[in-house]
Every structure is written in structure tokens, then in C-alpha cells.
């Protein structure tokens, strides 16, 4: 298919304080039905969306962090997290949800979806995208 475009969803906001994170996730899930080449970028406060152990029971909001774990089922398995953004927030990869997918071309082996990249690499990922949706 020659009309497959490279979509990049850029996530820069913390969850819950604003609606951007949830909106982005919903658009990604809806967009996944169109079988495009989809990648997600998490930078700045967006890296907080992927932290483990979220529990919204006391604030009366829906905890949507488990839904990121379904992205692999939706064939969304390129998830780029910016190292500089993690560092600035005192976070490491270990603080993030383990997101995985099953590789159809490799006997359904379970593989990590998250790739930590530098800001320079992130800039290149953006540059190589056909469509960028920023949240």
C-alpha cells in the first residue's frame, strides 16, 4: 500500500490536570483502525502519562493508564520516550509502564514497545513523519 502515511502523535502534557493526554490516547485508538504507520512520542511532561502505579480512586477520575498497555493489541508498537525529559523529572525507564507487543513476523515474540531516545533522535523522528498530531 503506497498510501500508508507515517503518523506521529506527540504527547507533552501530564495526565489528569488537562484533557490532552486522554484525548490523544482516544484519537490514537480510533486512528489505529485506519492501518497507517503510527508512532507515539512522549516528551516534556508527557512522560508522566506512562508512569507506573497510577491510582485515581480518590480524585474521582478514570485511571486510563492501563489502556496504554492495550496499544500493542492495536499494532501501535513504536513508542518513543525522550531521555532528556525523563532526566529533568528524575525518572528512568523503570518508572514507566512496561509496554509490549507481539511481533507477528517473529513467531509472536513479546517485545518492548518503548524506546528511550535523545532529543536529537526525537527531532529526527519528527522530521521523518508525514503527519504530526500534537497534544
Amino acid at each position: 500500500m503506497s498510501d500508508v502515511k507515517k503518523f506521529l502523535y506527540v504527547n507533552r502534557k501530564a495526565p489528569y490536570g488537562t484533557i490532552y493526554a486522554l484525548e490523544s490516547l482516544e484519537v490514537v485508538l480510533i486512528g489505529a483502525a485506519f492501518e497507517q504507520d503510527v508512532a507515539l512520542a512522549f516528551l516534556d511532561d508527557g512522560v508522566f502519562q506512562l508512569t507506573k502505579g497510577q491510582d485515581t480512586g480518590e480524585v474521582g477520575m478514570k485511571n486510563f493508564s492501563p489502556t496504554y498497555k492495550a496499544l500493542g493489541d492495536y499494532d501501535v508498537n513504536k513508542i518513543y520516550v525522550e531521555k532528556e525529559s525523563l532526566d529533568a523529572r528524575g525518572l528512568t525507564l523503570d518508572d514507566l509502564l512496561p509496554l509490549t507487543y507481539e511481533d507477528e513476523d517473529d513467531d509472536w515474540a513479546e517485545k518492548d514497545s518503548i524506546k528511550v531516545v535523545s532529543a536529537a533522535e526525537m527531532a529526527e523522528i519528527m522530521e521523518q513523519s508525514d503527519v504530526i498530531l500534537s497534544f
Binding site: L29, A32, N63, T67, K69, Y74
Partner: peptide
């Protein structure tokens, strides 16, 4: 219960 979403039909079929 696990993912907090109802899966799309393509995802449901595969799963």
C-alpha cells in the same frame, strides 16, 4: 477490566 477500554472489532477478533 484489564485495559479500561472495549476493544475495536479487529483487536477483539485477534485476541
Amino acid at each position: 477490566d484489564e485495559y479500561q477500554i472495549a476493544p475495536a472489532v479487529r483487536v477483539l477478533t485477534k485476541a
